[in-house]
Design a protein around this nucleic acid. Structure first.
Length: 597
RNA sequence: GCCGCUGUGGCUCAGAGGUAGAGCAGCUCACUCGUAAUGAGCAGGCCGUGAGUUCGAUUCUCACCAGCGGCUCCA
């Protein structure tokens, strides 16, 4: 390896990064050979591969990708050495100017004064690069270009959109093949495909983007999740509210949404006339509504904390390219709650909120799949946030303190805070590896003041409470999406829309099957009967494809003996058992909310 | 919103400048069946929507709608 001393061990992250980084240079080299007019932007290694951003008038077609891959193969086969060299700033700049690489010139100009400016050269291809790299292009034995996508220069939509070519690479063909195969397997779990196939949800062009129809299976699953969340919150001292889905612009003006969030709001009427006429808007968040509940009477420190919870449906006018399956929607429902508390209660309530979230994740089986992100403001971007720097610094320090006390291992989300305060986001990756926020817990030190929310303290003084905005299970639709992916559509029994299906072997067992179904329903189970005139093999096959956890076979033997033959999705034929034992078994599994993958 | 790809019966997909096929699903009939597909027959499509090019378009062009992968934004 040049510019480093790492052993060629692909399991080592640093080596892997150099490997992928060299791969991106090979990609850029091939592109420059085939399309010399292309300008180079940047080309880093990423988690499972690499990309390179190019500026070229013509879009790269799938055909071009093949040609580029072939050219890359030639570069690999030539086993070109990568040479590192350094240049003083002026010469470095001139080199890139000579090559008309304007993006590289821009990068050089922004390097700090004392930066070492290094380049890597393979044959006639030279790229500004800190390295490190592999020694020869021949080491990249297996690679594949996976897709082309648009990406803004320096990640800002104000800049030109470049073309990004993604690829992945490995030391040998077997590893590449395994990786691509795993990717293929993962895609079979894609909730957006599986969820539709299994009949959880659908969309229609007449209703619109980001507005799914929850079909009976999906609706039932959501209902089960909601009941669970609402019951658990009640146990933990939350008070239920049910607030309107819309309000006058006046409410959002106080909260600041009107000024910080308006582009994402559905507004009925002319927003320009909001100062003189009644203009209603669908709510993008329920916080100001619950604050109105708090304001119905004077509050004492003895009343605090007050924990409000609501299964709240929200509306956000997302841009067209942002909607995705059940992950990003224009109308969605979250387990929203606001805890109004005194400063000395903050840590305890924050911990309790996180404990509740952790309990939820554990119960639905996603606890192993999440990561934490501490999202703070960006002092350079004052338009996006309200409040003073002193306030932000203070509350962020408080929050960091709490998180560190709790020993939470978090990443830092710079500039990712809500406009009114910092957050702890619980992040999860979907089947494509894309990260989204599942749960969020936010500390708000602004809105109580704006809404003139007070409590009377021990000494008789009026103080503003602090507010924790939190979700306990997050957005229900998003959670369902991740559950479908996690369990490949086979939801744990307690939240399965159809828990058991009775399969009569022939027509003469229909009556007994119906009676069994009734008996199971009496025991609180969700049961159907496959009463079609089909062979048992076919019914079982379709039951497996429907991802049923349990199928019950009813034939002569069972009718005679008063037993039932049980087939479980995971363990196959469990043999016959008395109906009472079956009911006991299923009820226990439901009561324990058991998760099996 | 931006870049790219896609859009043929419920689903998976063929197809070609002269107005459409297969498998599965559905329906009917026969079979009454023991742990992942019984057989035969029938029916089902303004080829996403609108405009343009053309003697003629589902096939070519454009716009819109919807779906997908990114970017930006975000629960």
């Amino acid at each position: 390896m040049t510019g480093g001393t790492l052993m060629p061990d692909f399991a080592d992250a640093a080596y892997r990064q150099a490997f992928r980084h060299t791969s991106s240079h090979i990609l850029a080299h091939a592109v420059k050979r085939l399309f010399p007019e292309t300008r180079l932007a940047i080309g880093p290694a990423i988690e499972d591969g690499f990309y390179y951003d190019f500026d070229r008038e013509e879009p790269f077609t799938p055909d071009d990708l093949k040609k580029i891959e072939d050219e890359m193969k030639r570069i690999v086969k030539a086993d070109l050495p990568l040479e590192r060299f350094e240049l003083p700033r002026a010469e470095a700049r001139q080199l890139m100017l000579d090559k008309t690489e304007s993006y590289k010139v821009e990068l050089i100009d922004e390097l700090p004064e004392d930066a070492v400016i290094s380049f890597y050269r393979q044959e006639d291809f030279t790229d500004l690069c800190a390295g490190p790299h592999l020694e020869h292009t021949g080491q990249v034995r297996a690679f594949k270009l996976t897709q082309v996508a648009g990406a803004y220069w320096r990640g800002s939509e104000k800049n030109k959109m470049l073309q990004r070519i993604y690829g992945t690479s490995f030391p040998d063909k077997d590893q590449l093949r395994d990786y691509l195969q795993k990717l293929e397997e993962a895609r079979k779990r894609d909730h957006n495909k599986l969820g539709r196939e299994l009949g959880f949800f659908t969309t229609t062009e007449y209703i619109g983007q980001g507005l799914p129809i929850m079909l009976p299976k999906g609706a039932r699953a959501l209902q089960l999740l909601q009941r669970f969340v609402e019951d658990e919150e009640e146990k933990r001292g939350y008070l239920l509210t049910k607030t309107p889905l819309m309000a006058k612009s006046d409410l959002y003006k106080i909260s600041g949404h009107w000024y910080h969030y308006r582009d994402s709001m559905f507004i009925m009427g002319d927003p320009e006339k909001a100062d003189t006429e009644e203009v209603l808007a669908l709510r993008p968040m329920a916080c100001p509504f619950q604050f109105q509940a708090y304001l119905t009477r004077t509050r004492s420190y003895r009343d605090l904390p007050i924990r409000y919870a609501e299964t709240s449906t929200l509306f956000r006018n997302e841009s067209s390219g942002e909607m995705h399956g059940l992950i990003r929607l224009r109308q969605f429902t979250i387990s929203e709650g606001h805890i109004v508390c005194a400063p000395d209660q903050l840590e305890r309530e924050f911990r309790a909120s996180l404990d509740l979230a952790a309990f939820m994740l554990q119960t639905i089986g996603l606890d192993e799949d999440v990561s934490y992100r501490f999202s703070t403001w960006d002092p350079e971007n004052r338009e996006k946030f309200i409040g003073s720097a002193e306030q932000w610094d203070a509350v962020q320090a408080t929050m960091k303190n709490i998180l560190d006390h709790m020993g939470i291992d978090y990443a830092h989300g710079f500039g990712e805070a809500a406009f009114y305060g910092p957050k702890l986001d619980i992040q999860i990756r979907n089947v494509f590896g894309k990260e989204d926020t599942l749960i969020t817990i936010q500390i708000d030190f602004q809105l109580a003041e704006r809404f003139e929310m007070f409590y009377t303290d021990r000494d008789g003084s009026r103080r503003h409470p602090i507010i924790i905005h939190r979700t306990s299970i997050g957005c229900y639709e998003r959670t369902l999406a991740l559950l479908i992916e996690k369990y490949a559509g086979a939801l744990p029994l307690w939240m399965a829309p159809e828990q058991v299906r009775v399969l009569p072997i022939s027509e003469r067992h229909l009556e007994a099957a119906g009676q069994l179904a009734d008996q199971l329903r009496q025991a609180g189970l969700r049961v159907t009967v496959d009463d079609r005139d089909e062979k048992i093999g076919k019914k079982i096959r379709e039951g497996q494809m429907d991802k049923l956890q349990y199928m019950l076979i009813m034939g002569d033997q069972e009718v005679d003996q008063g037993t039932i033959s049980v087939r479980s999705r995971l363990d196959g034929d469990l043999g016959v058992m008395p109906v009472d034992s079956l009911i006991e078994r299923l009820r226990t599994e439901v009561a324990q909310k058991r998760n099996k993958v």
